[in-house]
């Protein structure tokens, strides 16, 4: 039907084509490599092994534990950050002097270099001279080995993650709150709702979409979290903070088992997509998606 071609197509088609081609070639290449047993430590050996690497993963306790830790970390980080962030947003939802300044300051953790965030928290969690233990001692508790104890280390990293990313939830929800109309809130008040009822029945449903998006973003980013783990614990102690992404890194760049590391990476990718689709299904039901 189109007789004239719209020249605006030529602005994006070549770029999309290159991106598609690159990602297609990479995907095929990665899948192909994951079906072999390529390792930089064994020069010359590179044979087709089929799905052996995948079988190996599901019999690899270290990998399975890493997967479980990823799930645990993602669920905890996402849920705590979203709930805490929303609570703070509701707390801040009033007019006060310096509100703009508070918003600017909330930006600090988000744009701080993640490596520096990791170092900072490592400094704070230092068992001998860190602020965390000093605070505990002032409050009358015993000192803790924040990053040295296998039972605690994962949660210490979690604290740093929560510190860095809860402000993101706050800022995004605040932006959504600003663009939401205030008339329905006033209408509910006129209709006799108490403040908590206004919040629960009118305000939060209006923020639903924004909350869903922010939860989705946080979940994806938590699955891929790397920097804090590398800086704060390097997966230790006793592998107690090794997530799947980190395990994949270790297999690739410490053991140089290229094929197996790609298998781990692909499983991580599949896991990310499954989690994404599952969350998407729950957060955006087909009928009546809130706007």
């Amino acid at each position: 039907m189109a007789k004239r071609t719209d020249p605006s197509r030529f602005f994006y088609q070549p770029i999309i084509a290159v991106l598609s081609l690159t990602s297609l070639v990479l995907t095929v290449y990665v899948v192909w490599l994951s079906l072999r047993d390529l390792s930089l430590m064994r020069a010359g050996r590179d044979t087709f092994v089929g799905i052996d690497n995948y079988i190996r993963f599901f019999n690899d306790p270290r990998g399975l534990w890493a997967l479980w830790r990823t799930v645990l970390f993602t669920v905890l980080a996402t849920s705590i950050e979203v709930v805490l962030g929303l609570a703070i947003v509701l707390f801040l939802d009033r007019n006060f002097a310096l509100k703009r300044l508070v918003r600017t300051l909330l930006l600090v953790p988000i744009i701080m270099t993640p490596v520096v965030v990791g170092l900072t928290w490592r400094f704070i969690f230092d068992p001998a001279s860190g602020m965390a233990n000093y605070l505990l001692s002032r409050l009358g508790f015993d000192a803790m080995d924040w990053l040295g104890s296998p039972q605690v280390a994962l949660y210490s990293v979690l604290i740093a993650d929560i510190w860095q990313w809860t402000p993101f939830v706050i800022l995004l929800s605040m932006a959504a709150l600003d663009s939401a109309p205030s008339d329905p809130l006033d209408a509910a008040r006129v209709d006799g709702a108490r403040e908590w009822q206004v919040t629960w029945y009118v305000l939060l449903p209006m923020l639903r979409r924004a909350i869903a998006i922010v939860a989705l973003i946080r979940a994806i980013d938590s699955i891929k979290a790397f920097d804090l783990f590398y800086i704060m614990t390097r997966g230790g102690p006793a592998l107690s903070t090794e997530t799947l992404n980190f395990y994949g890194y270790v297999v690739a760049f410490t053991n140089f088992e290229i094929s197996y590391s790609l298998t781990v990476a692909l499983i991580l990718t599949i896991f990310t997509n499954v989690a994404l689709l599952a969350m998407y299904g729950v957060l955006f039901p087909k009928n009546g998606e809130p706007r």
Binding site: S20, S23, V30, S261, V264
Partner: peptide, 20 residues
Amino acid sequence: KFILSLRIAPALVFVIPVYY
């Protein structure tokens, strides 16, 4: 959607072949 999908995959999956 395609552009978004490019941003979901973990960096690991593409860093390893590039490294190789």
